[in-house]
């Protein structure tokens, strides 16, 4: 199943309209996200796909809040020398992202292709390294 840009936008709109019913960890289900087996051709779509994959698979631990375990761990690890939130990093290279997803580190386990396919790993890698070097 391929990622539907329209479906994602519609869901986001729906969520924003729910007002007070909205609580943490809203977002797509894994069924709605789907698994891509081929990377999008355009750079824009690749980054959009990467963001969607990040929001589902990474954000629950690496979101900006300090309650998120990955962010809390990186805050201790880097002690302010690097941002604790992955999306704010400008130093990550693709090999690093791929290594973390397929090897894990410390308590973070690795992720299988039935969770993050190789194409989706490419997308999330593109998303997380888009500001590298800036």
């Amino acid at each position: 199943m391929h990622y539907s840009k329209f479906g994602f936008a519609a869901t986001a709109l729906l969520l924003s309209l729910q007002g007070s019913a909205q609580v943490p960890e809203d977002g797509l289900t894994s069924r709605e996200l789907g698994i891509s087996l081929e990377s999008p051709i355009s750079r824009v779509e690749l980054l959009e796909r990467g963001e969607a994959v990040y929001d589902y698979w990474c954000n629950t631990c690496h979101g900006p809040e300090m309650l998120k375990p990955g962010t809390a761990a990186l805050a201790i690890k880097y002690r302010g020398e690097l941002p604790a939130t992955l999306t704010e990093r400008t130093d990550m290279v693709p090999e690093f992202v791929e290594l973390m997803v397929r090897e894990g580190i410390s308590m973070m386990p690795f992720f299988r292709p039935t969770e993050i396919s190789n194409a989706d790993l490419d997308a999330v890698t593109a998303y997380l390294t888009q500001n590298t070097g800036e």
Binding site: V23, P24, E25, T60, C61, L67, K68, P69, G70, A72, A73, I76, K77, S106, M107, M108
Partner: peptide
Amino acid sequence: KVALGIPNMEIFRLGTRPD
């Protein structure tokens, strides 16, 4: 949050401290 039926990953904060 889980007592309110809200899933999250905060429990891993107890372990993922590289100190």
